[in-house]
Simulated scan of single mutants.
Amino acid sequence: MSSDLWPPPQPVSLTVRDRDVRLPVRRLFFVGRNYHAHAREMGVTIDKATTQPFYFTKSALHLVPSGTTQPYPPQTRDYHHEVELVVVIGTEGFAISSSEAAALIYGYAVGLDMTRRDVQARLRERGHPWCLGKDVEGAAVCGAVTPMPGVVVSRGEIGLAVNGQVRQRADVVDMIWSVPELIADLSRYYHLQPGDVIFTGTPEGVGPVSPGDRIHGWVEGVGDVSLAIGTAADGGRG
């Protein structure tokens, strides 16, 4: 019988609010530019009538729980916060309609999509994938999952503060593509499975953080998320 050359990665999971269980995480999907005001601050305009949602992914190994301290990452001088409503899939589905999407929902959480913005911008200008700007160690942060089977969250304040100063504040109702629309669209490309996690996009007000900063994000009726930024991972900044 063969054995592993080295220990395999530890399973990735999230806490579940008010339940003594862990929720195994399978994949992390992120929706880009899902609020008009944020799209504008990124220099683009979204016409929903002629545009489809677009996505990027991060390794589940880069997911960290709320309340931790993560080092300021290497190779950036412009590390940004992005607060997001997070949807957790609890039932498999493929090529479903928006009207069927609610049945796949297990619950919701609040997440942070941390971004090396300067790296992302450089890659975007060259027409390259965003991986080095987005798929950063410790850059997917998620709070406890609130079980809400079959519930579609369609409104509620979403916001973020850094060191107590509010930087992002909007309403989930402002999303360009709703939760059911996103689930249905993703299911055209992937066989969605329990443990798939969808970060649904961030509102306007994204901005830089520095070592020593403390981030707090929230979504009304869902929960919150927090993160402390530690010293630079490489001993410097960029």
Rank of each mutant, 00 (worst) to 15 (best):
M1V: 15
S2N: 12
S13N: 13
D18W: 05
R19D: 08
L28R: 02
L28H: 01
F30E: 06
F30R: 05
H38I: 13
A39P: 00
G43E: 11
D47F: 10
Q52K: 15
F54W: 15
F54C: 08
S59P: 07
H62L: 15
E82N: 06
E84T: 05
V86K: 02
V88F: 11
A101I: 00
A103L: 09
L104E: 06
G111R: 05
L112F: 08
M114F: 06
T115F: 07
R116C: 14
G127R: 13
H128V: 11
G138T: 08
A139F: 00
A140R: 02
G143V: 02
V152Q: 09
V153Q: 01
R155G: 11
G159H: 00
L160V: 08
V162E: 03
V162Q: 02
G164M: 04
G164K: 07
G164L: 04
R167W: 12
Q168R: 09
A170I: 11
D171H: 04
W177M: 07
S178W: 05
S178I: 08
I183L: 15
V197N: 06
I198H: 04
P203H: 05
E204G: 07
V209P: 00
S210E: 15
P211A: 10
I215K: 02
G217A: 09
G223H: 01
D224T: 14
V225C: 04
L227I: 08
A228L: 08
A232F: 06
A233L: 11
G236T: 13
G238M: 08
G238D: 12
